[in-house]
């Protein structure tokens, strides 16, 4: 319609500037490369910590899945543990009843969690206030917990699912007692999923999610189908959470009702807030910080580590992550200024 209006030859330098601005977020930053180099190095340099590191990376992947909906789509939840727990049970049941091959279990867990996300996601869209979303997600997680508790013929109920055995990965790498295969497996799966998530959040679809988060009214008036877009990321986020749950089952060869407990959903939110929302690495960094702090605090005061954890959380939230991150730079600048004065 406005062909005449837009057909004038666009000025090339402006187009280049626009292209630069649009590709800015997808460019690899040195800190990102450093992060993954450190992760790879940890595999070789900390062989006696592989069990703890597996735990960390699983928690980090779980928190990353949460970041996709909270950080990028602005949808809050208190029940993300439902997808984690479902993934954990599906992986366990697959190994007992179907096949002990780990990648099949991982895929089935992912599909099951994504399906649950697709099924329960519309509940979040009906009344799009934060409070209803918190309650709906919490409710879904509670339903699932009690269902798993009740269906003890399938899940083992409160005793947990016994007899999970996992075949060697790719038929070659046996899951060992030291967690070396487990850690390598978790790390690679997490890396691949992070790459995929990164690609998605820097795509036009990812841009539309940020727009919906910033201003859903405007997004609607621009003709962006808000509901389907949110539903898609919710299901994808559920898929990743399900994979994280499956990794936990496969690396510990055990599933208990604990995977569906409320504290899972609360912890993962805490981890994400610790690491920072909305830049994809917050979950992974938060998981490292969370586990290290937990270790440190419980060594200092075994009974009161929760107290210190709570204090750290308050400080992080009240001061704001932005200010904490820019603190070193601000200090340097002030020192420089004083040195010159």
């Amino acid at each position: 319609m406005t062909d005449t209006f837009l057909s004038a030859t666009p000025p090339a330098p402006i187009r280049q500037r626009a292209a630069r601005d649009l590709t800015r977020r997808a460019r690899w930053k040195p800190a990102e490369i450093l992060f993954w180099l450190c992760a790879a190095a940890s595999f070789f340099l900390l062989p006696d910590q592989h069990l703890l590191l597996s735990e960390i990376v699983i928690l980090g992947l779980f928190a990353l899945s949460l970041d996709l909906i909270i950080g990028y789509a602005g949808v809050v939840t208190l029940g993300h543990g439902a997808f984690f727990g479902l993934g954990a049970y599906v992986a366990g049941l697959t190994s007992i009843h179907l096949t002990a091959e780990p990648l099949t279990g991982l895929a089935l867990a992912a599909l099951a969690a994504a399906a649950l996300g697709l099924a329960t996601g519309p509940l979040l869209l009906l009344r799009a206030s934060d409070l209803t979303r918190l309650m709906v997600t919490l409710g879904v997680a509670m339903l699932l917990y009690e269902a798993a508790n009740k269906a003890s013929w399938l899940t083992g109920g409160a005793d947990g699912l016994q007899g999970v055995m996992i075949d060697p990965l790719l038929g070659r790498f046996e899951f060992d007692l030291f967690g070396t295969t487990a850690y390598g497996y978790c790390l690679i799966v997490t890396f691949v999923l992070t790459l995929i998530a990164r690609r998605i959040v820097t795509s036009p679809y990812g841009l539309s999610l940020r727009a919906i988060r910033d201003n859903a009214l405007r997004a609607r008036s621009m003709g962006i189908p808000v509901g389907p877009r949110l539903l898609a990321i919710y299901a994808f986020s559920a898929l990743i959470a399900g994979i994280a749950g499956a990794l936990l089952t496969q690396t510990t060869m055990f599933v208990s009702l604990d995977v569906l407990a409320f504290h899972r959903s609360a912890d993962v939110l805490l981890v994400l807030v610790l690491g920072g929302v909305g830049y994809l690495y917050g979950g992974l960094i938060g998981a490292v910080a969370f586990k290290l702090l937990q270790d440190w605090f419980s060594a200092l005061t075994p009974q009161y580590w929760m107290f210190w954890m709570g204090l750290v959380l308050l400080v992080v939230v009240l001061i704001g992550r932005d200010r904490i991150q820019t603190l070193p730079r601000t200090l340097m600048r002030r020192l420089h200024a004083e040195g010159r004065a």
Partner: peptide
């Protein structure tokens, strides 16, 4: 707008 795999800034017509 729903492309999940395309990179931003890769379509010349949109850039123009």
């Amino acid at each position: 707008g729903g492309d999940i795999w395309r990179r931003l800034g890769s379509r010349r017509d949109i850039l123009s």
